[in-house]
C-alpha cells in the first residue's frame, strides 16, 4: 500500500456509488474543452464527489487536455484526437488523458517555485503545477509519436468523516 493509499484509508474513504469506465474520444481542439469539462464533471458528480472536488477534477482535466491541444500535434499531424478515460473503482476516480503526438519529458518540468515563477511573469506552464496540486496522484507515460498518457487520481473521501479523523 502506498503512502497515498494509507493517507486516504485513514481519511475514511467511502465506496463510489458504482464502478466502471467512461471514455470520450474527441478532436484535439480548444473548442471542445467545454464539452470535456461537462463530461468529466457529470461523471464525478454521479460518483458522489462534493462540488469542491468536482471543480478540482474538472480543472485538472482541462489543464491536461489544454496541454495536448496546444503542444501535442503540429499542422502535419493526421490523427489529432485525444482520449479522456475515467475509471471508477474502489475509493477513487482515475482520469487518463491520452494523445498520440510529440510528447515531452516530464522530468524536465519541475514544480516551479511559484513566487519566482510569477515574479518573472512566465506565461504558461502553470497547468502542470495546478494538476499536481488539485489531484492526489499525477504520473506520466510518454512515448513520443506513439502514445502519451497523463494519469491522475482523486480519492473519494467522506469529507465530514475525514474532518473528524483529523
Amino acid at each position: 500500500m502506498t503512502n497515498v493509499d494509507k493517507k486516504h484509508k485513514k481519511a475514511k474513504s467511502i465506496r463510489p456509488k458504482f464502478e466502471g469506465e467512461y471514455k470520450l474520444r474527441i478532436p484535439s481542439a480548444t473548442d471542445n474543452l467545454e464539452l470535456i469539462r461537462g463530461f468529466v464533471a457529470k461523471v464525478a458528480e454521479k460518483v458522489g464527489f462534493c462540488p469542491d472536488d468536482i471543480g478540482k477534477i474538472e480543472l485538472a482535466c482541462d489543464e491536461a487536455c489544454t496541454n495536448v491541444m496546444k503542444h501535442a500535434y503540429d499542422k502535419k499531424s493526421k490523427n489529432t484526437s485525444l482520449d479522456v478515460l475515467i475509471k471508477i473503482d474502489y475509493q477513487k476516480l482515475t482520469l487518463v488523458v491520452t494523445d498520440h503526438g510529440k510528447g515531452f519529458n516530464p522530468n524536465t518540468i519541475p514544480m516551479p517555485n511559484l513566487k519566482e515563477y510569477l515574479a518573472e511573469l512566465k506565461v504558461g506552464g502553470l497547468g502542470i503545477y495546478l494538476m499536481r496540486t488539485l489531484m492526489d496522484e499525477v504520473d506520466y507515460d510518454i512515448k513520443p509519436g506513439v502514445q502519451n498518457r497523463v494519469r491522475m487520481v482523486k480519492y473519494l473521501i467522506d469529507r465530514k468523516k475525514s474532518e473528524l479523523v483529523q
Binding site: 474543452l33 469539462r37 474538472e58 480543472l59 482541462d62 489543464e63 489544454t66 510569477l118 511573469l121 512566465k122 506565461v123 504558461g124 502553470l126 497547468g127 495546478l130
Partner: peptide, 16 residues
C-alpha cells in the same frame, strides 16, 4: 463561472 491557467496567463502576459 470558470477559469483555467490559460485565463490567468492573459493577466501575466500584460501586467508588466
Amino acid at each position: 463561472t470558470y477559469i483555467s491557467s490559460a485565463g490567468l496567463g492573459v493577466f501575466m502576459g500584460y501586467i508588466e
